[in-house]
Write a protein that binds this DNA or RNA. Structure first.
Lengths: 141, 141
DNA sequence: GACAGATCGTTGACTACGCAAATAATATGG
DNA sequence: CCATATTATTTGCGTAGTCAACGATCTGTC
């Protein structure tokens, strides 16, 4: 647990730098854009926030710069004016594809040397962990 | 990678709440106190920061409240006045032991239902990952 | 012995997030 | 049809971390 903290922080920071210099977005931005690209529906902010495990206010703030540089658009729902719908722009779609490729390469480099078997185990764990809400995990590890 | 982000954040937040209500410290504080308790030497701040993968300034700021509530003490080195040595107080030692037990229980609960095999794999991965600095990992996973 | 340069800790300015309260809009009971 | 409750987003304020710049101190070299 303790190392997950440090490891994750360092990896995310590295990705931030890499993505930032090449595409002008951070890791958190990429996560948001990916979700938008892969969405079936046009998300309301609240649903998007829930899927990303982000607070609604956190999402509001994350969207501001993305809207400013025209990677996303927001539009008030016609039926319910409380709701704002978020959608990728064409530019956004291009960027997310490029940036994802960059991230994939960066990650390959980051985790090189770690046995594939372990990576698979982690991936499996994380899929389950998507649902941890009232459960938790092994102590200090 | 993407899920590590969210999972880690949520788990850490949960631990924060739990530790905060029972012992008055956060997860980050526990990590620092544990390192101090388990240290062979009396750490300089810079070495402590390096071990925790924290920036020196981040550590400075994290130590302020810990010193204020007397869980740690700082003392100028006699030989080199630039260096400040950090040490647990008696109270600090008591708190860290109690809080660690709380964290262990919380983690057991958090990760219940995840196969032990996977947890071991992750633990192994993290040991290796301690040294990732110029390497990275598998893409979006 | 003075002084140029490295090292240690702190500070300022910034980002990214959370929670709680405020705001705006809709839904509902009487 | 109005009063009240509920829902979606935003805003205010606090926390935790980063990096870059600074002052204090130490060290090696002339």
């Amino acid at each position: 647990m303790i190392q997950i903290n440090a490891m994750q922080a360092r990896a995310a920071r590295k990705l931030d730098l890499w993505l930032g210099s090449l595409h002008g977005i951070g890791f958190g931005d990429l996560v948001i854009l990916r979700a938008l690209r892969d969405a079936r529906e046009v998300y309301r902010q609240l649903d998007l926030a829930r899927q990303l495990h982000l607070s609604p206010s956190g999402l509001t703030r994350a969207l501001i710069p993305l809207e400013k540089i025209h990677l996303i658009e927001r539009e008030r729902d016609a039926r319910d004016a409380r709701i704002s719908r978020v959608r990728l722009t064409e530019t956004g779609r291009r960027i997310v594809d490029d940036a994802e490729e960059t991230a994939r390469e960066a990650c390959e480099q980051l985790f090189a040397g770690i046995p594939l078997r372990d990576l698979r185990a982690v991936a499996g764990l994380l899929d389950d962990a998507g649902s941890i809400s009232e459960r938790s995990s092994k102590a200090s590890a």
